[in-house]
Protein backbone atom coordinates (compact mmCIF):
# COMPACT_ATOMS: atom_id res chain seq x y z
CA UNK A 1 0.00 0.00 0.00
CA UNK A 2 2.71 2.38 1.03
CA UNK A 3 4.56 1.48 -2.14
CA UNK A 4 1.49 2.20 -4.21
CA UNK A 5 1.10 5.60 -2.58
CA UNK A 6 4.71 6.43 -3.16
CA UNK A 7 4.42 5.42 -6.77
CA UNK A 8 1.33 7.49 -7.39
CA UNK A 9 2.86 10.49 -5.66
CA UNK A 10 5.99 10.19 -7.79
CA UNK A 11 3.78 10.10 -10.86
CA UNK A 12 2.02 13.25 -9.78
CA UNK A 13 5.38 14.85 -9.13
CA UNK A 14 6.65 13.78 -12.54
CA UNK A 15 3.58 15.17 -14.25
CA UNK A 16 3.99 18.46 -12.41
CA UNK A 17 7.63 18.59 -13.40
CA UNK A 18 6.70 17.91 -17.01
CA UNK A 19 4.12 20.65 -16.96
CA UNK A 20 6.49 23.18 -15.42
CA UNK A 21 9.16 22.33 -17.89
CA UNK A 22 6.75 22.66 -20.79
CA UNK A 23 5.57 25.94 -19.49
CA UNK A 24 9.10 27.25 -19.17
CA UNK A 25 10.07 25.85 -22.52
CA UNK A 26 7.73 28.32 -24.17
CA UNK A 27 9.77 31.10 -22.66
CA UNK A 28 12.94 29.81 -24.21
CA UNK A 29 11.64 29.71 -27.74
CA UNK A 30 13.75 31.08 -30.50
CA UNK A 31 13.18 34.81 -30.78
CA UNK A 32 11.35 34.47 -34.08
CA UNK A 33 8.85 32.04 -32.66
CA UNK A 34 8.41 33.75 -29.35
CA UNK A 35 6.52 36.67 -30.83
CA UNK A 36 3.49 34.73 -31.94
CA UNK A 37 1.17 34.15 -29.03
CA UNK A 38 -1.85 31.97 -29.71
CA UNK A 39 -4.36 33.74 -27.51
CA UNK A 40 -7.46 31.60 -27.33
CA UNK A 41 -9.99 31.95 -24.52
CA UNK A 42 -9.18 28.43 -23.27
CA UNK A 43 -5.48 29.16 -22.96
CA UNK A 44 -5.86 32.52 -21.34
CA UNK A 45 -4.60 31.35 -17.98
CA UNK A 46 -1.49 29.89 -19.47
CA UNK A 47 -0.74 33.06 -21.39
CA UNK A 48 -1.06 35.08 -18.21
CA UNK A 49 1.36 32.81 -16.40
CA UNK A 50 3.79 33.22 -19.28
CA UNK A 51 3.67 36.96 -19.00
CA UNK A 52 4.21 36.70 -15.30
CA UNK A 53 7.20 34.43 -15.71
CA UNK A 54 8.86 36.82 -18.12
CA UNK A 55 8.05 39.74 -15.82
CA UNK A 56 9.66 37.86 -12.96
CA UNK A 57 12.84 37.27 -14.91
CA UNK A 58 13.89 40.50 -16.56
CA UNK A 59 16.91 38.82 -18.10
CA UNK A 60 14.73 36.83 -20.46
CA UNK A 61 13.76 40.01 -22.29
CA UNK A 62 17.32 40.23 -23.51
CA UNK A 63 16.98 37.15 -25.67
CA UNK A 64 15.22 39.20 -28.36
CA UNK A 65 17.53 42.19 -28.20
CA UNK A 66 20.77 40.18 -28.12
CA UNK A 67 19.93 36.81 -29.69
CA UNK A 68 23.55 36.08 -30.58
CA UNK A 69 24.53 35.58 -26.95
CA UNK A 70 22.61 32.30 -26.93
CA UNK A 71 24.73 29.46 -28.32
CA UNK A 72 23.74 27.09 -31.08
CA UNK A 73 21.36 24.55 -29.52
CA UNK A 74 22.93 21.61 -31.39
CA UNK A 75 24.35 19.47 -28.56
CA UNK A 76 27.17 18.26 -30.81
CA UNK A 77 28.67 21.74 -30.94
CA UNK A 78 28.15 22.86 -27.37
CA UNK A 79 30.94 23.38 -24.88
CA UNK A 80 30.56 25.59 -21.84
CA UNK A 81 34.13 26.89 -21.82
CA UNK A 82 34.10 27.79 -25.50
CA UNK A 83 30.81 29.60 -25.09
CA UNK A 84 32.19 31.51 -22.14
CA UNK A 85 35.31 32.60 -24.00
CA UNK A 86 33.20 33.58 -26.97
CA UNK A 87 30.90 35.70 -24.83
CA UNK A 88 33.81 37.49 -23.18
CA UNK A 89 35.24 38.26 -26.63
CA UNK A 90 31.87 39.59 -27.75
CA UNK A 91 31.65 41.87 -24.73
CA UNK A 92 35.17 43.11 -25.36
CA UNK A 93 34.20 44.05 -28.89
CA UNK A 94 31.02 45.68 -27.65
CA UNK A 95 33.08 47.86 -25.33
CA UNK A 96 34.85 49.26 -28.40
CA UNK A 97 31.87 49.85 -30.65
CA UNK A 98 28.22 50.57 -29.98
CA UNK A 99 26.26 47.60 -31.34
CA UNK A 100 22.68 48.78 -30.85
CA UNK A 101 19.53 46.78 -30.38
CA UNK A 102 17.90 46.12 -33.74
CA UNK A 103 15.54 43.65 -35.33
CA UNK A 104 14.72 42.22 -38.71
CA UNK A 105 12.84 45.05 -40.43
CA UNK A 106 14.85 47.85 -38.81
CA UNK A 107 16.66 50.29 -41.07
CA UNK A 108 20.37 50.53 -40.35
CA UNK A 109 23.36 52.51 -41.55
CA UNK A 110 26.65 50.62 -41.34
CA UNK A 111 30.06 52.20 -41.89
CA UNK A 112 32.97 49.86 -42.50
CA UNK A 113 36.63 50.37 -43.24
CA UNK A 114 37.23 49.40 -46.84
CA UNK A 115 40.72 49.51 -48.37
CA UNK A 116 39.31 49.92 -51.87
CA UNK A 117 36.82 52.70 -51.18
CA UNK A 118 37.47 56.37 -51.61
CA UNK A 119 38.27 57.82 -48.21
CA UNK A 120 38.80 54.23 -46.98
CA UNK A 121 35.33 53.98 -45.50
CA UNK A 122 32.07 52.76 -46.95
CA UNK A 123 28.61 53.60 -45.62
CA UNK A 124 25.59 51.56 -46.56
CA UNK A 125 21.97 52.09 -45.61
CA UNK A 126 19.35 49.41 -45.89
CA UNK A 127 16.66 47.34 -44.27
CA UNK A 128 17.74 44.34 -42.24
CA UNK A 129 16.20 41.36 -43.99
CA UNK A 130 17.88 38.57 -42.09
CA UNK A 131 19.74 38.09 -38.86
CA UNK A 132 21.38 34.79 -37.97
CA UNK A 133 24.36 33.04 -36.43
CA UNK A 134 25.42 32.61 -32.83
CA UNK A 135 28.33 34.09 -30.93
CA UNK A 136 31.08 35.75 -32.93
CA UNK A 137 29.60 34.32 -36.13
CA UNK A 138 26.52 36.53 -35.80
CA UNK A 139 25.68 38.28 -39.04
CA UNK A 140 22.96 40.38 -40.61
CA UNK A 141 22.02 41.33 -44.15
CA UNK A 142 21.03 44.80 -45.33
CA UNK A 143 19.05 45.37 -48.51
CA UNK A 144 18.51 48.52 -50.51
CA UNK A 145 17.76 49.47 -54.09
CA UNK A 146 20.46 51.70 -55.58
CA UNK A 147 20.04 53.03 -59.12
CA UNK A 148 17.16 50.57 -59.78
CA UNK A 149 19.41 47.71 -58.80
CA UNK A 150 18.79 45.65 -55.69
CA UNK A 151 21.87 45.48 -53.45
CA UNK A 152 22.35 43.28 -50.44
CA UNK A 153 25.35 43.42 -48.11
CA UNK A 154 26.05 40.85 -45.45
CA UNK A 155 27.91 42.12 -42.38
CA UNK A 156 29.49 40.29 -39.48
CA UNK A 157 28.24 41.86 -36.28
CA UNK A 158 31.59 41.53 -34.50
CA UNK A 159 33.86 42.33 -37.45
CA UNK A 160 36.51 44.82 -36.27
CA UNK A 161 36.42 46.62 -39.63
CA UNK A 162 32.92 47.85 -38.80
CA UNK A 163 33.28 51.47 -37.73
CA UNK A 164 29.74 52.18 -36.64
CA UNK A 165 26.26 50.68 -36.71
CA UNK A 166 23.46 53.21 -36.51
CA UNK A 167 19.78 52.39 -36.26
CA UNK A 168 17.88 54.86 -38.42
CA UNK A 169 14.44 53.43 -37.74
CA UNK A 170 13.88 50.87 -34.99
CA UNK A 171 10.93 48.63 -35.83
CA UNK A 172 9.89 45.06 -36.42
CA UNK A 173 7.95 43.53 -39.27
CA UNK A 174 5.35 40.79 -39.36
CA UNK A 175 7.81 38.06 -40.38
CA UNK A 176 11.11 36.89 -38.99
CA UNK A 177 12.87 36.95 -42.36
CA UNK A 178 12.18 39.47 -45.09
CA UNK A 179 13.82 37.56 -47.92
CA UNK A 180 10.63 38.05 -49.95
CA UNK A 181 11.63 41.68 -50.49
CA UNK A 182 13.84 40.33 -53.29
CA UNK A 183 10.70 39.47 -55.23
CA UNK A 184 8.69 42.46 -54.07
CA UNK A 185 8.26 45.76 -55.88
CA UNK A 186 11.42 47.85 -55.52
CA UNK A 187 9.77 50.68 -53.58
CA UNK A 188 9.46 48.41 -50.54
CA UNK A 189 13.21 48.11 -50.21
CA UNK A 190 14.29 51.56 -51.35
CA UNK A 191 15.72 53.84 -48.69
CA UNK A 192 17.58 57.06 -49.17
CA UNK A 193 21.15 57.22 -47.93
CA UNK A 194 20.68 60.59 -46.25
CA UNK A 195 17.86 59.39 -44.05
CA UNK A 196 17.73 60.99 -40.59
CA UNK A 197 17.59 58.72 -37.57
CA UNK A 198 14.15 58.57 -35.97
CA UNK A 199 14.41 58.62 -32.20
CA UNK A 200 11.80 56.80 -30.17
CA UNK A 201 10.91 58.19 -26.76
CA UNK A 202 12.52 56.21 -23.98
CA UNK A 203 10.60 53.26 -22.60
CA UNK A 204 8.33 52.71 -25.60
CA UNK A 205 8.09 49.14 -26.87
CA UNK A 206 9.56 48.46 -30.30
CA UNK A 207 6.80 49.22 -32.83
CA UNK A 208 5.70 46.56 -35.29
CA UNK A 209 5.23 47.84 -38.82
CA UNK A 210 2.15 46.06 -40.23
CA UNK A 211 2.97 46.91 -43.87
CA UNK A 212 2.17 44.19 -46.40
CA UNK A 213 4.34 44.23 -49.51
CA UNK A 214 3.24 43.47 -53.05
CA UNK A 215 5.16 40.82 -54.92
CA UNK A 216 6.14 41.06 -58.54
CA UNK A 217 4.66 38.43 -60.86
CA UNK A 218 6.45 35.11 -61.16
CA UNK A 219 9.11 33.69 -61.54
CA UNK A 220 10.09 33.98 -57.88
CA UNK A 221 13.26 33.00 -56.11
CA UNK A 222 11.42 30.81 -53.60
CA UNK A 223 7.98 29.30 -53.21
CA UNK A 224 6.70 32.11 -51.00
CA UNK A 225 3.17 30.69 -50.97
CA UNK A 226 4.31 27.72 -48.88
CA UNK A 227 5.96 29.78 -46.13
CA UNK A 228 2.86 31.20 -44.39
CA UNK A 229 4.07 34.79 -44.70
CA UNK A 230 2.09 37.53 -43.02
CA UNK A 231 3.82 40.48 -44.64
CA UNK A 232 2.77 39.76 -48.24
CA UNK A 233 -0.50 41.17 -49.60
CA UNK A 234 -1.00 39.76 -53.06
CA UNK A 235 0.36 36.26 -52.96
CA UNK A 236 -2.92 34.64 -54.01
CA UNK A 237 -3.14 36.61 -57.28
CA UNK A 238 -0.09 34.97 -58.68
CA UNK A 239 -1.00 31.40 -57.78
CA UNK A 240 -2.52 28.82 -60.08
CA UNK A 241 -4.83 26.06 -58.92
CA UNK A 242 -1.90 23.66 -59.16
CA UNK A 243 0.14 25.70 -56.68
CA UNK A 244 -2.69 25.78 -54.15
CA UNK A 245 -3.05 22.01 -54.34
CA UNK A 246 0.69 21.52 -53.89
CA UNK A 247 0.68 23.92 -50.96
CA UNK A 248 -2.01 21.88 -49.24
CA UNK A 249 -0.10 18.68 -49.88
CA UNK A 250 3.18 20.08 -48.57
CA UNK A 251 1.71 21.78 -45.50
CA UNK A 252 2.96 20.54 -42.13
CA UNK A 253 0.36 21.85 -39.68
CA UNK A 254 1.42 19.37 -36.99
CA UNK A 255 4.86 20.89 -36.60
CA UNK A 256 3.71 23.56 -34.19
CA UNK A 257 2.73 20.78 -31.79
CA UNK A 258 6.08 19.01 -32.13
CA UNK A 259 7.55 19.54 -28.68
CA UNK A 260 10.72 17.65 -29.49
CA UNK A 261 11.42 19.82 -32.50
CA UNK A 262 10.91 22.91 -30.41
CA UNK A 263 13.20 21.49 -27.75
CA UNK A 264 16.00 20.88 -30.21
CA UNK A 265 15.74 24.42 -31.55
CA UNK A 266 15.96 26.18 -28.20
CA UNK A 267 18.29 26.63 -25.27
CA UNK A 268 16.76 25.42 -21.98
CA UNK A 269 15.69 28.16 -19.62
CA UNK A 270 18.15 27.06 -16.92
CA UNK A 271 21.06 27.52 -19.31
CA UNK A 272 19.68 30.85 -20.45
CA UNK A 273 19.47 32.10 -16.90
CA UNK A 274 23.15 31.36 -16.37
CA UNK A 275 24.11 33.08 -19.60
CA UNK A 276 22.09 36.22 -18.99
CA UNK A 277 23.22 36.45 -15.39
CA UNK A 278 26.79 36.45 -16.66
CA UNK A 279 26.24 38.94 -19.47
CA UNK A 280 23.47 41.19 -18.19
CA UNK A 281 25.50 43.33 -15.81
CA UNK A 282 28.15 44.20 -18.37
CA UNK A 283 25.58 44.93 -21.04
CA UNK A 284 23.77 47.33 -18.71
CA UNK A 285 27.06 49.05 -17.85
CA UNK A 286 27.83 49.48 -21.54
CA UNK A 287 24.37 50.94 -22.16
CA UNK A 288 24.79 53.42 -19.33
CA UNK A 289 28.18 54.64 -20.53
CA UNK A 290 26.76 54.98 -24.05
CA UNK A 291 23.87 57.07 -22.78
CA UNK A 292 26.03 59.48 -20.83
CA UNK A 293 28.43 59.90 -23.74
CA UNK A 294 25.49 60.43 -26.14
CA UNK A 295 24.13 63.16 -23.88
CA UNK A 296 27.48 64.88 -23.95
CA UNK A 297 27.65 64.64 -27.69
CA UNK A 298 24.38 66.53 -28.23
CA UNK A 299 26.00 69.79 -27.17
CA UNK A 300 28.72 69.71 -29.80
CA UNK A 301 28.04 71.68 -32.93
CA UNK A 302 27.63 69.53 -36.04
CA UNK A 303 30.33 69.88 -38.65
CA UNK A 304 29.23 70.89 -42.15
CA UNK A 305 29.27 67.83 -44.38
CA UNK A 306 31.14 68.00 -47.64
CA UNK A 307 30.01 66.45 -50.89
Amino acid sequence: MALAIRRSSSEVFGAAKWFIRRDCRVLSTVPERAEEKPVTPKRERQAVSRVRASARNPNLGLRHAYPEFLPDPNPKWRNSLREKLERSDMLKRRSQIDIPEFYVGSILAVTIADPHAQGKTNRFVGICIERKGCGLRAEFTLRNVVDHQGVEVRYDLYDPTVQSIQVLRLEKRLDDKLLYLRDALPEYSTFSFDMDPEILPEGTPVPVNPVQVKLKPRPWLERWERQELKGVANIEEHLKEKDRVRRELRATPWEKYDLMKQYRKTIPIEDQNDIWAEVNHQLRQLQLTRKTSARKRTFTTPKPQLG
Binding site: D89, K92, Q96, K120, Y158, P160
Partner: peptide
Protein backbone atom coordinates in the same frame (compact mmCIF):
# COMPACT_ATOMS: atom_id res chain seq x y z
CA UNK B 1 45.63 38.80 -34.96
CA UNK B 2 43.38 41.70 -34.01
CA UNK B 3 42.37 41.72 -30.35
CA UNK B 4 38.73 42.25 -29.58
CA UNK B 5 39.45 45.03 -27.09
CA UNK B 6 41.52 47.00 -29.60
CA UNK B 7 40.09 49.87 -31.59
CA UNK B 8 38.37 49.11 -34.89
CA UNK B 9 40.52 48.56 -37.94
CA UNK B 10 41.04 51.57 -40.18
CA UNK B 11 43.02 51.78 -43.38
CA UNK B 12 45.50 54.58 -43.97
CA UNK B 13 45.17 56.66 -47.09
Amino acid sequence: IQRFDERSITYEE
